[in-house]
Simulated assay, not measured.
Amino acid sequence: MARTTVEDLFIHELSDIYSAEKQITKALPRMARASTNPLLAEAFKSHLEETQGQIERIDQIVELTGLKLKRMKCVATEGLVEEGKELLEEIEKGEVLDAGLIAACQKIEHYEIASYGSLVSMAKSLGLTEAAELLAATLAEEKGADEKLSAIAEQGGNQAATLEKKKK
Rank of each mutant, 00 (worst) to 15 (best):
E164A: 07
T25P: 00
E95W: 12
A132D: 14
E82S: 09
Q159F: 14
S125Y: 09
L139A: 06
E86K: 07
G156W: 00
V75I: 13
P38V: 01
D59M: 00
E109T: 08
S118M: 13
A123Q: 11
K70Q: 15
G100N: 03
E78C: 14
E82C: 01
K167M: 07
L28M: 00
L101H: 02
S121T: 13
A137C: 02
K93F: 06
V96Y: 03
H12Y: 12
T138G: 09
N37Y: 02
E90Q: 12
L126A: 06
E50R: 03
E164V: 02
Q52E: 12
E42Q: 05
Q54W: 02
D16G: 01
E21V: 06
A161Y: 13
A103W: 13
T4G: 10
L139T: 13
F44Q: 09
E42R: 09
E130T: 03
V62C: 14
A140F: 15
R30L: 01
P38I: 02
A41H: 01
A114M: 01
Q155T: 07
A103C: 11
L67W: 14
P29R: 06
G84F: 00
L149V: 10
T162E: 15
L14N: 05
E7Q: 12
A161Q: 08
S19C: 08
E42Y: 07
G84M: 02
L67H: 05
A76M: 07
R33A: 08
R57W: 09
L119R: 10
T65G: 14
A103E: 09
N37G: 05
K167Q: 01
F10L: 14
K68L: 02
L64I: 05
G127A: 15
K73T: 11
S46W: 05
M122E: 15
G117N: 07
K93L: 03
L88S: 06
E92K: 14
E89K: 12
K93T: 08
E90T: 15
E90A: 11
K70E: 15
L67Y: 15
T36K: 04
S125H: 13
Y111A: 07
L67K: 03
E164S: 11
G117T: 11
A32T: 01
A99K: 01
E133I: 12
E21Q: 03
R30K: 14
K143L: 03
A140Q: 13
L134R: 11
V96C: 01
A137N: 12
G117K: 04
E92Q: 13
A103K: 11
K85S: 05
G84S: 10
M72F: 13
P29K: 04
P38F: 05
K45M: 13
K70M: 14
A43I: 00
D59T: 01
V6L: 15
K70F: 04
S118P: 08
I113K: 11
K143S: 08
I113V: 07
C105K: 04
E63S: 14
E49P: 00
E130R: 15
E7R: 15
L40D: 04
L28K: 01
T5R: 09
E141A: 10
L126Q: 12
S115A: 15
K124C: 06
